[in-house]
């Protein structure tokens, strides 16, 4: 189905778009299976009818939104780089709106220091949730200033159309300067909290996945280098950029922090 949106010329890097064919058939979405081809293959196992998102926690007006409420927010298209922690990358046109617009509706209080994102839990239908590969439901988190940053997007579409299930329909997060797993898919709850949340990956392997997970070519993963990345569809690697090329916009969020320690 098509979406009404405006291209945002501010976020159009001079980069070649990844083939939609690649971006829509090669996905990490463990709820639908751990192989890269599983999410597309099992896409119909994700049921998105009557989707609602609950925003709760440290805010004056906790609320539940349905997709019509969210699609009433002005939708824009932004072309972002996307870098997976595994070392592949893509450049894709997301459609959506800044998360800050949504969070402002619930009026976060001064206690809202972090934001926790909770994805769908449906053990009956989602093949990946029959096994505890991760502690389901999938949980991720951001610091409140990261969540309110103008680059942080709630995506509802991709390549001009509503998100397909394998891409995290109907609503997902996009944080372009962090490794892809920070960009939660199929979100059902957003919780404003005072303490730093523990994400599913932090819980699974704390030595390998930190809370920040900013793209950083100088800090290797425990088992592989992060200095380079392979764009989808290409054979050779290219250099990974600090904060995935968004250093001008986001480096100030982390000034004075030891990024090796807070990886």
């Amino acid at each position: 189905s098509s979406l009404r949106f405006q291209p945002n010329p501010q976020y159009r890097p001079d980069l070649k778009l990844t083939d939609a064919e690649h971006a829509l058939h090669y996905n990490n979405f463990y709820e639908l299976g751990t192989d890269k081809s599983d999410p597309y293959r099992n896409a119909d196992r994700l049921i998105t009818d009557n989707w609602q998102v609950r925003i709760e926690g440290e805010c004056a007006k906790p609320q539940t939104f349905d997709m019509d409420d969210l699609l009433a927010i002005e939708q824009e298209e932004r072309i972002y780089r996307f870098r997976c922690v595994e070392g592949w990358s893509m450049v894709v046109p997301w459609i959506g709106f800044p998360l800050s617009k949504l969070l402002n509706k619930v009026e976060p209080t001064s206690k809202a220091k972090y934001v926790e994102f909770i994805s769908i839990l449906d053990r009956k239908n989602l093949p990946g949730q029959r096994f505890n590969i991760l502690d389901w439901p999938y949980r991720e988190g951001l610091r409140i200033d990261e969540a309110m940053h103008p680059l942080t997007l709630m995506a509802t579409g991709l390549y001009g159309e509503a998100l397909q299930n394998q891409s995290g329909a109907p609503l997902r997060l996009i944080v372009p300067w962090k490794y892809g797993f920070k960009s939660s898919k199929s979100i059902v709850t957003i919780r404003l909290v005072e303490k730093q949340p523990i994400s599913s990956w932090m819980q699974a392997t704390p030595s390998e996945y930190g809370f920040y997970s900013n793209v950083n070519p100088q800090v290797p993963h425990r088992r592989w280098s992060q200095a380079k990345e392979r764009p989808l569809g290409s054979f050779f690697k290219k250099k990974t950029l600090m904060f995935n090329g968004y250093a001008d916009e986001v480096a100030s969020l982390y000034s004075g922090m030891d990024l090796r320690r807070y990886f």
């Binding site: 083939d19 064919e21 690649h22 971006a23 058939h25 090669y26 890269k36 081809s37 592949w88 392979r230 989808l232 569809g233 054979f235």
Partner: peptide, 11 residues
């Protein structure tokens, strides 16, 4: 040869 190894041919 057919360039038919998917999105991440090297992988």
């Amino acid at each position: 040869l057919q360039d038919n190894l998917g999105a991440n041919p090297v992988e």
